[in-house]
Amino acid sequence: MSLVLDDVTVRRGIGPVISNVSLEVEPGKITTLVGPNGAGKTSLLEAISGVVQAAGGTITMDGTDLRKLSRRRRSTAGLKHVEQGRMIFPSLTVRENLKLTARTQADFEEALALFPELEKRIDNATVLLSGGEQQMVVLARAFAAKPRYLLLDEMSLGLAPVVFLRLMPIIKQISETGVGVLLVEQFAHMALGVADDAVVVTSGRVSYQGEPQGLLSDEDLLKQAYLG
């Protein structure tokens, strides 16, 4: 069982931004998706979660055809999408943000345990937190919902590399609970460092798929991942 994309095409405007992309995200593993700006990475994640509709191909999650489900039903089925930007509820406290998705107290406590930094700020409004702390709230809230698969889109935007580096082991911890993670990230070296599988998309197509180490050790491939 896994999240499987087969020959997926996504169109925006007059032409495709993603063409015939196939990949698989397995439970308990991290697939890191990298590529230059404008390669279509965000559009691909949006097609998986239902923000936009794929123009072709199939998307299945543990055998269920996601293209037949609304965005809301994909979410309730266990697919969580953390989009670009820190999507917090600024007037709510950290506790209230996590309670929005945690079904039980145990789910709340397990999510909070991933981020000891947040325990000190548990009753603070999230608008008062640093950018890094806000991103922790977003990630904790997604994990509190007990996802089967987690789509993470450019979590590092607006964060210092050292802050983002703090999040990488936590994403690994989340995957080790059995969650399949599809990670889109501009800091390729950091994201590939925790990945089980690597995919490079350039000009809307897969140009590399395989071991993360194979990508990290090939300077030309890495250049392609950054610059196209």
Rank of each mutant, 00 (worst) to 15 (best):
M1L: 08
L3R: 06
L3A: 08
L3H: 07
L3F: 08
V8H: 04
V8S: 02
V10D: 04
R11T: 13
G15N: 14
V17S: 05
I18R: 02
S19T: 15
V21I: 13
V21M: 07
E26P: 00
I30T: 01
L33S: 04
G35H: 04
P36W: 00
P36Y: 00
P36T: 04
N37D: 14
N37C: 10
G40M: 10
K41I: 12
S43Y: 10
A47F: 09
A47K: 03
I48M: 06
I48H: 01
S49C: 15
G50A: 09
V51H: 05
V51R: 00
G56P: 04
G57N: 12
T58A: 08
T60V: 13
T60I: 07
G63S: 09
D65T: 02
R67Y: 00
K68A: 15
K68Q: 15
L69S: 09
S70A: 09
R71Y: 00
R71T: 14
R72T: 11
R74T: 08
R74D: 08
A77E: 14
G78R: 01
G78K: 07
H81F: 15
H81R: 05
V82E: 01
V82T: 04
E83L: 10
I88N: 07
F89L: 14
S91H: 14
V94I: 08
R95Y: 13
N97I: 05
N97T: 10
L100P: 02
A102S: 11
R103C: 00
A106T: 14
F108R: 01
E109D: 15
E110P: 02
A111P: 07
L112W: 11
A113G: 09
L114K: 03
L114G: 02
F115Q: 06
F115P: 02
R121Y: 09
D123Y: 12
Q135F: 03
M136H: 06
V137D: 11
V137R: 01
A144K: 00
R148H: 12
R148N: 07
R148K: 15
L150Y: 08
L151A: 08
L151N: 06
D153I: 07
M155Q: 14
L159D: 01
P161S: 04
V163E: 07
V163R: 03
F164D: 06
M168N: 03
P169F: 03
I171M: 01
K172A: 12
I174S: 01
I174G: 00
V179K: 02
V181K: 01
L182Q: 03
L182S: 03
L183H: 09
V184T: 09
Q186L: 01
F187S: 08
A188R: 00
L192P: 08
L192W: 07
L192D: 11
L192A: 08
G193V: 08
D196C: 01
D196G: 12
A198G: 11
V199H: 03
V199L: 12
V200F: 10
G204T: 06
G204M: 07
R205L: 06
R205K: 15
Q209P: 01
Q209M: 12
G210Y: 07
G214Y: 12
S217V: 11
D218F: 08
E219T: 14
L222E: 13
A225W: 13
Y226K: 03
